[in-house]
Design a protein around this nucleic acid. Sequence first.
DNA 1: GTCTATATCAAGATAGAC
DNA 2: GTCTATCTTGATATAGAC
Lengths: 178, 178
Amino acid sequence: MDMENRKEQIIERALVHIKKRGYLSFSYDHLSKELGLTKASIHYHFEKKESLGLAVCDRLETGLDQMMIAIKQMDIDPKEKAIEFLRMRLSYIDLDEICPISAFQADFPYLPEILKQSVQHVTNKELGCVAELLKDIHNNEAKAILLLSALKGALQYRRAVGGEIMETISKQLKELLQ
Amino acid sequence: MDMENRKEQIIERALVHIKKRGYLSFSYDHLSKELGLTKASIHYHFEKKESLGLAVCDRLETGLDQMMIAIKQMDIDPKEKAIEFLRMRLSYIDLDEICPISAFQADFPYLPEILKQSVQHVTNKELGCVAELLKDIHNNEAKAILLLSALKGALQYRRAVGGEIMETISKQLKELLQ
DNA sequence: GTCTATATCAAGATAGAC
DNA sequence: GTCTATCTTGATATAGAC
């Protein structure tokens, strides 16, 4: 198969696995079986697991860039834009998944150094995105931290207490931005 | 060594490891080396890893009970009691740790069934504790979810962005309860 | 109650054929 | 680009001696 397509396909599946299991717990074996390949073939495209982890972080950053472009072009009240960001972020996360950035953070102390740096970068980028969308509101950095922490904490709670929790949280976060 | 003391000691170390690495990632080998024992000796006290996981959940529940007793006896404004709960919960979590309940939640889909049940139980118990302390405030269940999600999400953020985030969150959570 | 030794399995990674 | 085969490591768990 064409190399760029295959690489993309592997990154895509790895991202799903990270959202479901976390970075440390997913394996080349899981991945290869789903893609109809062998572990060795994955290693051909991404020599080490950390290379694949880095590629996934890059992809998350690209996704954030695209979301910001889309949101800035929307014809909605600026005060709605942070909420729209959270809504779009959630749309990429299934019921049995958590935020991939949270997953990396949970494994953080045991990541290879270079991957830690990428995780820090995408973490700060996402915080910066929300803070930027809140720029007309007082105390935007602190508010961005509160919104994202609550959203991602709730995604983990969802695993144990069920999906209704997300509506409870979303409602309150919207109130917080009134 | 006395069996009850040894069991307690193992549970205590396991809890620390879960806060640092998560349930799936800590091992009897890590534990045994710290305690000056062998893996086999840990297996004598807790035949399977899931038995140890269950004991850790029990310990967390006991801790919640004790905290609630202590807080109810405190001579402070009822409106301060939820904040005091969060403060006490935080005091058991080091700078390089996350909330152990969050750690179990992150691993949730890959836990043995019986341990899932224990994690659900302690999760709901903690939510119930905060909701109870908020009982004079409107919408207490929803507020409890918001407070705990934000606190625990922030603990994971701390790993990637540093400790200052906790003061930002604490300050905002206090404002939310005014 | 703790030990040594070992069985079993899964993971990351590499060598070399096609 | 993908394969088979293999190495190495680390994990859960058990058997049996002391």
